[in-house]
Design a protein around this nucleic acid. Structure first.
Lengths: 198, 198
DNA sequence: CCTCAAATCTGTACGATGTACAATAACTGT
DNA sequence: ACAGTTATTGTACATCGTACAGATTTGAGG
């Protein structure tokens, strides 16, 4: 695990190593377990070595959130042969599963909202589906709605897990369906107004 | 500000003092500013005095969340003369305002979900409105949906504030309206099924 | 090949945090 | 008055982020 014992320019680390270690710590011990010293120990390096790659802990945490988002395959939901409702449902469930698999990741995303390429890719996939749904100008707001509900929902579930994990999934699915109903109603209303203006 | 300089049984503190100090710190410096030592200093007492009233910091934080919920007047929304949609909208906006007024409070609620009398009172108010709406068995899930969206939404807004705070309110209102549309559609569907069973 | 600056890492150290432990003073009941 | 309980203090420790100052290796320019 440990690389060397003496200082010097040796390139024993990489940004990926740090993020991988951070992710492992997150999975094992929750958000509190993600510490600079813990990461360093796990990759076998002095704590300060981390600062060669990240300016401070907040940057590591942001990077970790990005890293996590990079693990979800969102291109899979771009296929327009399925209904937009099914696609969003599946997308939401997938993201939820990924977040639930790493306790603390939601907290971390809510306190240090990432904004790297992976984050934007996810956002764009969502926006594309919503555009297909005919939400037009409201697509951005709808995306925001889905996002915030997802994060809030998972955060709450992590903090206060239901007795039966299955029940959590059922409840989440129900909530997403209500959201989709609301969006569908809005689409219908917009369409109606467009065909019979003011 | 400081009470005394020597040990001894003096009852210089109260649970309320501690929570008030914590709330002030939260309002001033966000969640990170809420520390045992900070609270103690603010009420002019040794850090360990806090442990007479709370077993650990987590308990203080939970108490603080409760304290905060106790400040919102939710009975005001119990009046059934208004439509349930208006009542929920107003309720959500009120809670949002309270949470936004204390940066970090959402985080704190998401990491240490309170469950004291105030929390339950708020939940019951919500449930009552939703029961009026005719949601029946689904009222609990609907309440959960509104709750999680509220928390997620505010958390996100605190972490990444919009350029124009007004825009945040508009967006939130739009989202709540979509939620309400979704719930209304569900109510209609349930009613339809009940009048024409299977 | 030699030199040297830049890059990468280590060691030490400081201030802040939560909190365990023991000592101390004031109150309470007898 | 005395004894026991209890609120408070002071001291101390482990852990955290990270600033600072070396040490060592590496690669580039001569």
């Amino acid at each position: 695990m440990d690389k060397k014992g003496r200082p010097g320019r040796r390139r024993t680390l990489s940004e990926q190593d740090i993020l991988d270690a951070a992710l492992a710590l997150l999975a094992e011990g929750g958000a509190d377990a993600v510490t600079i010293r813990g990461i360093a120990a796990r990759v076998g390096v002095a704590p300060n070595a981390v600062y060669t790659y990240f300016p401070d802990k907040a940057a590591v945490v942001r990077g970790l959130a990005e890293h996590l988002l990079g693990r979800v395959d969102h291109d899979r939901f771009a296929d327009p042969s399925q209904s937009w409702r099914d696609r969003i449902r599946a997308f939401a469930l997938e993201l939820r599963a990924e977040l639930l698999a790493h306790p603390g990741s939601v907290h971390l995303m809510l306190s240090h909202p990432p904004d790297g390429p992976h984050t934007q890719a996810v956002r764009e996939t969502l926006l594309a589906i919503l555009a297909d749904a005919g939400l037009g100008r409201a697509a951005a707001d709808a995306s925001y709605l889905i996002n915030t509900h997802l994060l809030g929902s998972v955060a709450f579930e992590v903090a206060a897990p239901p007795d039966d994990p299955e029940a959590g999934t059922t409840r989440f699915r129900w909530a997403v369906d209500r959201l989709l109903d609301g969006l569908a109603a809005h689409v219908a209303a917009v369409r109606a107004e467009r065909s019979a203006p003011r």
